[in-house]
Nucleic acid binder design. Structure first.
Length: 277
DNA sequence: ATATTCCCCTGGAAGC
DNA sequence: TGCTTCCAGGGGAATA
């Protein structure tokens, strides 16, 4: 569910609620997530600590505590947060609850348990968790452009869609925005990445930055589960040009029923075969 | 090394 | 109504 724009939306929403708040205690009422939730390590790290800052790296949320310890959170496919006025009893699918000194509670729900909540045990030289060291560049920061994509795709053979969803190449692009960016760039998702010209990859880098920026401005995309911290939906859904539109008319060339759905690496891809080569 | 497949888990929608 | 099948925004381990 959450790709870069959704995670960014959530971090921006959480920040004013949580920055400066002091954690009284942590509970893990919901059993294991992707990894077992080490509630003792969480308590040790969090009790009595203020939340100094919240940041996003790739699709991870980093919670920096006043002690310098960092919590590493991931939403998986169905993770969501709420901040509520009291320490209410656990709701359905609630996995981790932080009780704050001011009486509020910060709650993580995740029906499918693909998310994760971990205490970072070692920081790299860049101040980021060492466990995130293998991630590629942020697409909205310097260092990501057509030249970079060109360099990283020479001699590689996989489909370009799989390549841009590889978090070691560029972070934050998931299944929705991969299809959307390739449509905007006029590139077939099945094209072998090593065969793309520098010019085409310039267009693709621009398209990725453009679609992510627009989606952040719209508060993300809600297909089914995604909700902001206040429960609201993302508005970018209405701007999707291909995702979920199989059998509908292409918005660029107008071909009736022009949008196709295909499967790559077990994930749905949407494209217009006439517009994307 | 590189690329693809499978699996984790739960719920909703669609098909019969 | 009820049962079965398919599908889902992610990521990582296990295979080719």
């Amino acid at each position: 569910m959450p790709e870069l724009p959704e995670v960014e939306t959530i971090v921006r929403s959480l920040r004013p609620h949580l920055r400066g708040a002091v954690i009284r205690d942590v509970a893990a009422p919901g059993g294991r997530l992707r990894h077992p939730v080490d509630v003792e390590a969480l308590r040790l790290a969090c009790r009595g600590q203020a939340i100094a800052e919240l940041r996003r790296r790739a699709k991870y949320i980093l919670v920096e505590l006043s002690s310098g310890t960092v919590l590493v959170l991931h939403l998986g496919m169905t993770g969501a947060f709420r901040v509520v006025p009291s320490a209410a009893p656990a709701a359905t699918h609630e996995r981790v609850v932080w009780i704050l000194e001011d009486g509020r509670s910060w709650r993580f729900m995740d029906p499918r348990r693909f998310g994760s909540v971990q205490v970072c045990t070692s920081l790299g030289a860049d101040g980021l968790p060492a466990a995130l060291a293998g991630l590629g560049p942020e697409p909205l920061e310097a260092g990501f452009d057509g030249e970079y994509l060109y360099r990283r795709t020479r001699g590689r053979d996989r489909p370009i869609k799989n390549h841009i969803m590889d978090q070691a190449e560029v972070v934050g692009v998931g299944n929705i925005y991969a299809s959307e960016a390739l449509f905007r760039a006029g590139i077939s998702p099945r094209r072998r990445c090593g065969t793309l010209s520098r010019k085409a990859l310039d267009r693709l880098a621009d398209a990725i930055r453009e679609v992510l920026t627009e989606a952040i401005a719209a508060g993300g995309t809600t297909i089914d589960d995604f909700r902001d911290v206040d429960g609201s939906e993302g508005h970018f859904t209405t701007n999707l040009q291909v995702y979920g539109r199989q059998g509908q008319d292409c918005l660029r060339c107008g071909r009736p029923g022009g949008i196709r759905r295909l499967v790559q690496a077990g994930r749905s891809t949407y494209c217009c075969p006439r517009c994307q080569r």
